[in-house]
Design a protein around this nucleic acid. Structure first.
Length: 278
DNA sequence: CCTGAAACCTGTCTGC
DNA sequence: TGCAGACAGGTTTCAG
């Protein structure tokens, strides 16, 4: 699931508690099980377990698609769910551990456990002193009000890249993934192959507005749940183009097209999103 | 700087 | 039914 709205939803649920489980905020980690060592980007499993045991989660947040847990001693845990990662609460009494695809299990004093579950094993977790080592290259947060339309337009002007790959580039903007990029471009009325520098000032403003609108809508719906994993959100019911190839555009009726751009399936309405010249 | 391809992985679905 | 192939919400690395 994990693009900005889904990661934001998880962060809120871990902070406040949810139907899926209790709040993580304020809990003290007793021990950690490392079931698939490559899930840990840093440090090594032994050091990770030692550093974490006895520490309390004091803050929970998000940066781009990363989850961020602040610890008592000032260190930070960063989690990236990549394609198939998720966090599963397991209530006491403990079921026979581990569950299928659990890669990391955090154990708490009252018997609750939080599993980093990840069928495809692409997800990664870091424990770092200085988070800029991991987050330093990320672009701005799309929902940060200090990101101005002028700045955004200026940055588009500097790139000759096509819009689709550019919006997926986390150094340009942090948090958009394949689903939300397709939805955003539809709502902005911009073709995914448009070179960034060809956008007018008005189009750039429309694009930034669409980015913010679609992300806010996604968050309001607790993100999207697709394929076989259910994560609690229902934004998939409101997709305008994503995985709707061949179906009529909700605005004009033209069949939605699918094209592979930068190795990613891309969906758009050829009428509402006119292709660039050439 | 930019683009495309491959790699990292497992699971599901489609079509023959 | 069985099996090959396409496809999947992400990122990194390497070749050209």
């Amino acid at each position: 699931m994990p693009e900005l709205p889904e990661v934001e939803t998880i962060a809120r649920w871990l902070r406040e508690g949810s139907p899926q489980g209790p709040a993580l905020l304020g809990r003290t980690c007793q021990r950690v099980e490392v079931l698939w060592p490559r899930t840990l980007a840093a440090p090594d499993p032994i050091t990770f377990a030692q550093r974490l045991s006895g520490q309390t989660i004091t803050t929970i947040g998000r940066r781009g698609k990363f989850l961020r847990w602040g610890l008592t001693d000032g260190a930070v845990i960063l989690l990236h769910l990549r394609m198939s990662g998720d966090l599963h609460w397991q209530p006491p009494p403990a079921p026979p551990s581990p569950q299928p695809h659990d890669r990391l299990v955090f154990h708490f004093a009252d018997g609750w456990r939080l599993a980093f579950n990840d069928p495809r094993k692409f997800g990664r977790v870091w424990l770092v002193e200085d988070e800029t080592d991991v987050l330093g290259a990320l672009g701005p947060e799309p929902l940060d009000p200090t990101l101005s339309a002028e700045d955004f337009y200026a940055r588009l002007q500097r790139s000759r890249t096509r819009l689709k790959p550019l919006l997926l580039d986390q150094r340009f903007l942090a948090g958009l993934g394949n689903i939300y990029t397709d939805e955003v471009l539809f709502h902005a009325g911009l073709h995914p192959l448009r070179p960034a520098h060809t956008l007018t000032r008005a189009e750039a403003e429309r694009l930034l507005s669409a980015i913010r609108q679609v992300l806010q809508d996604g968050i309001a719906h607790h993100g999207a749940s697709i394929d076989w994993v259910y994560r609690g959100g229902d934004f998939q019911n409101y997709f305008a183009v994503y995985r709707r190839a061949g179906q009529p555009c909700r605005r004009c009726g033209t069949p939605i097209q699918r094209l592979v751009i930068g190795q990613r399936g891309s969906h758009f309405c050829p009428h509402c999103q006119p292709p660039p010249e050439g």
